[in-house]
Amino acid sequence: MKNRDDSDAPDDRHEPRTHRRKRDLPFPYNQDLSGILPHLNRRTVWGRARLANHRVTASLLAAGMRLLEQHFGPCAERPVTSKSLLLGPLSQRSVAEAFGHNPAPFDRHGDGAGLLRDRWTPYSNFVVDLINFAVWKENYRPEFRTHRDANTRRLVHGCDGRDFVRAVHDIAHRHTTEGMDLPSVRLGLALMTVADADEEIARITSGIYAAYLGSWKELYAAVLRERGLRLRPGLTLDDLADALSAANDGVTLRALGDPASGVVDDARRRSLTGTITLAVIHAFLEPADEASGLSLEQAVATRFGGRARSSAGQ
């Protein structure tokens, strides 16, 4: 029977209080996970929410996250190679073994494989929920929001154009290098290559971008408003966000796959992401009070057409 009755949900009332309090787990495992784990093996919303916020469930996720770090992190102990399957490191046996070696205060007692089967049937549902958890915004570095606020102040209220350019380069370099170091980002980039063959992975990928780009679009809108800029006709804020996101993804992949390429320069705190960002800003945006009214295509055609006529007249 795939979905257990909610009356069979784990009962931890008789366990030592010091061992059963989920709020004693580190952030973000101590947070409400009911909206992050939709595939738990319970019939009702109440049953799934209760199981999502059980400390054993959080401990199983912690085991899976350690495996992600070991196999997908920048200093992976056992990196995924051409000889191993992409998600091979997340087999039920591997997660169950990792659960048994959980550090305190996570739970590590009991039959890990049995606990997994109780919560996720089929096991692939655990992998999907683990990916959901891994790419959850609360799993990004704690200083992320602080950096975002500082970036907003620099881009929106910077003193002059030169400071704006420096801010773009600094932010782009930080964003790219942090992404390279996060196992969840590295896994997300790898999963994109198989998303078209897996509806669930495609849904997760789409959800990641919806949340990720939403916050960036708020920043871009503030920059346009406060800096007196406007998008060229035919372009939208979605186009701007997608273009800059694609640039960052591409540079991140290139830097990971070809470290000697030089697309990220840590010594100068520069990256190709910053250069592309400035190019997109220059091409997509115009001063609102001096707008030409030309679309991007018209502006490019005019520039090259003008050069051609000038050359012909010489």
Rank of each mutant, 00 (worst) to 15 (best):
D8G: 08
T146C: 03
A9L: 15
A267Y: 09
R148D: 10
R48N: 04
H147A: 10
I131W: 07
E97V: 10
K22M: 11
L278Q: 08
Q70Y: 03
G114R: 12
E297S: 12
S82T: 14
G161C: 10
R230H: 12
S215Y: 02
A98K: 00
S245P: 00
G114C: 14
L256H: 05
R108T: 09
S34E: 03
V168Q: 00
M180L: 10
G313W: 05
L85Q: 13
W216G: 00
D24P: 00
R55F: 08
L189R: 08
R66D: 09
V127F: 11
R119W: 03
A113T: 12
L296V: 08
Q314I: 11
R162K: 14
P10L: 13
D242K: 10
L285C: 06
N132T: 05
A96G: 07
L213A: 05
L240K: 04
H109A: 14
P89M: 02
Q314F: 11
G161Q: 14
L294N: 05
E69M: 06
T18P: 01
T152Q: 12
R17A: 12
R43K: 07
R254V: 01
L213C: 08
E69P: 00
Y209H: 07
G88Y: 06
A62W: 02
L189G: 05
L213I: 09
A62T: 05
E200W: 01
L235I: 12
D238I: 13
S245V: 05
R227K: 12
H54I: 02
S271H: 06
R269E: 13
R20Q: 11
K2W: 08
I171C: 00
R174F: 00
T176M: 02
D160L: 07
H175D: 04
T252Q: 03
V168S: 03
L37S: 02
G293K: 08
A62P: 02
E178W: 05
E138D: 12
H54M: 09
T177V: 12
S59Y: 08
E143L: 06
P79T: 09
A190F: 04
T236P: 03
R230C: 14
L256M: 14
H175C: 01
M192L: 11
P89S: 10
G257C: 03
T177E: 02
L224V: 05
T236A: 06
L213Y: 01
L296C: 01
I276C: 08
V185F: 01
R42Y: 13
I131F: 15
D160Y: 09
L187E: 05
H39R: 15
N125P: 00
P28L: 06
C159E: 12
S271P: 01
P142Q: 11
P38E: 03
R141W: 04
V56R: 15
G47H: 04
D265K: 07
A150Q: 14
F126C: 02
R232W: 07
C75I: 01
M192W: 06
N132Y: 14
C159W: 05
P233D: 09
D238Y: 11
S82Q: 13
Y220Q: 04
D196H: 15
L68E: 02
V223F: 02
I171F: 04
S310V: 03
K83W: 04
L86A: 08
N3D: 07
A301R: 15
T44L: 05
L25Y: 14
R225Q: 15
L256E: 01
K217C: 02
G73I: 04
A279S: 15
P183S: 09
P259V: 03
M65D: 12
G306Y: 14
